[in-house]
Design a protein around this nucleic acid. Structure first.
Length: 406
RNA sequence: CGGGGUGUCGUAUAGUGGCAGUACGCAUGCUUUGGGAGCAUGUAGUCCCAGUUCGAUUCUGGGCACCCCGACCA
């Protein structure tokens, strides 16, 4: 990609109306544009990051046996009345068709759609288990959206739903998903700061589990057990008597964190509301046990920025960076050959071919945060100055040895 | 939803009851070219609606928008 053709530009100043680091940096660098409070447009750079995150998650979902579908955002009121959540779900967007006076809901989650859907195809134990996921926009009427991408009113979410024949199968699958989630957070580069966290199970079960990423930008408080490398959400710290639920350790440290994922054993809460049943091998009808598993992609992207930046800008982990290489030429046309060489080898490259000063180009490169900066100028002669965004030292290497970076 | 704060060119800001200023950006030209470069010329703005006033961007009221704290948050 030629940077001169990129339709967005960077901003030199922090936007006045943003306080959070993720919003400031993502807006300044041209990853996102705020359409209104809690609602963001993803610009070319930002959408590339989302796509990277999405692919990492999708791969893991497929490995879990997930089949991908796409359920509607526009949902019937009736289904929400069936589960009793039309009135109980306090961030539900409700509205009425101006013409037909039909009542609708903008989907904040999809149990109300996926449960009856599965009921249409599952009637025997032979049809189970079912694992379905989608990556789709969700709408929640947050009283107060905040912190840039961390709490929005419209956001992209991956939601996986599992349907099993009995609680044991659900539990087994639940544990599998837990491991996959940990893998996902490692893959996007925040594994070190992310903890499996015991949280309230609401009315359905004793616990649910969250994945919490430590950062001061977080809105949750959790208690970390360093022995087990897990944590307890403050909302249930009383219930566990201030001790680690695994080892009983009472020496927990309190941290602020962002919830980047949540997994939930729903059991029969929704399947029974929609009358889901299946015939067992003995012909007897049984209830279906559900689980749901969510990851907010926008929030994850914002979280990565929160834990990986410096005063100059974003430092993307390579796996989610919009490009791997950022060629910065300080002499018009000098980067062309390098650009074509890298493109030919299949690399993702942003090529700063703009007619701008060195300082401006460096500042933009730091702000945008692509992992490998490749500078070519009169000074570098027939070589390339390579510098990792995450490090301060650089080195001169020949074009020929660039291959080792690929 | 309760509390607090803020709305001035595209961005960031100054200022005023009487022609609204600066920097960056953008446009043109020349000079520059390893950390947001220089000179010149140009471009563009007071959130909305009322009220007070000879006159409102400024004062008053209402509205809208955005941010922060709290409450809420599968």
């Amino acid at each position: 990609m030629l940077q001169s053709k990129l339709f967005t530009k960077t901003q030199k100043e922090d936007p006045r109306e943003e306080e959070s680091t993720n919003a400031k940096l993502l807006i300044r660098a041209g990853y996102v544009d705020k359409t209104m409070a809690g609602v963001y447009t993803f610009l070319p750079l930002g959408w590339k990051v989302i796509k990277k995150i999405e692919e990492i998650i999708r791969r893991e979902m497929v490995a879990l046996g997930g089949e991908e579908i796409s359920m509607p955002t526009l949902q019937p009121k009736k289904n929400w009345e069936t589960t009793g959540r039309y009135d109980a779900y306090d961030t539900l967007f409700k509205f009425q068709s101006f013409f037909t006076k039909t009542d609708y809901v903008l989907g904040p989650t999809h149990e109300e759609i996926v449960s009856p859907l599965v009921g249409k195809f599952v009637s025997s134990y032979k049809d189970l288990p079912v694992r379905i996921f989608q990556i789709q926009n969700k709408f929640r009427d947050e009283k107060r959206s905040k912190s840039g991408l961390l709490r929005g009113r419209e956001f992209l979410m991956k939601d996986l739903y599992s349907f099993d024949a009995d609680p044991k199968e659900l539990e087994k699958y639940y544990e599998k998903v837990k491991k996959s989630y940990a893998k996902i957070f490692r893959a996007v580069g925040i594994g070190r700061q992310t903890y499996l966290t015991y949280a309230s199970g609401g009315t359905f079960s004793k616990y649910s589990h969250e994945f919490q990423t430590l950062t001061n930008a977080g809105e949750d408080a959790i208690y970390v057990c360093d022995k087990c490398r897990l944590a307890v959400n403050r909302e249930i710290i009383e219930d566990v008597h201030g001790a680690c639920p695994e080892c009983g350790n009472k020496n927990l440290r309190e941290e602020k964190a962002i919830e980047v994922g949540n997994i939930f054993p729903l059991k029969t809460r929704f399947s029974s509301a929609f009358g889901l049943k299946f015939a067992g091998a003995n012909g007897v009808e049984n209830e279906i046990f559900m689980g749901c598993y969510g990851i907010g992609l926008n929030r994850l992207m914002g979280t990565i920025v929160e834990v990986s930046h410096d005063e100059r800008g974003i430092i993307w982990p390579e796996a989610v960076a919009p490009f791997k290489f950022h060629i910065v030429e300080l002499k018009k046309g000098k980067g062309r050959a390098l650009y074509e060489k890298l493109i030919k080898s299949g690399a993702e490259v942003l090529y700063d071919d703009r007619d701008a000063t060195a300082g401006e180009k460096f500042a933009d490169a730091d702000l945008i945060g692509i992992p490998w900066r490749l500078v070519v100028s009169d000074k570098t002669k027939d070589k390339v100055e390579v510098r990792k965004r995450s490090e301060s030292k650089s080195k001169l290497i020949s074009y020929g040895s660039l291959g080792q970076l690929l």
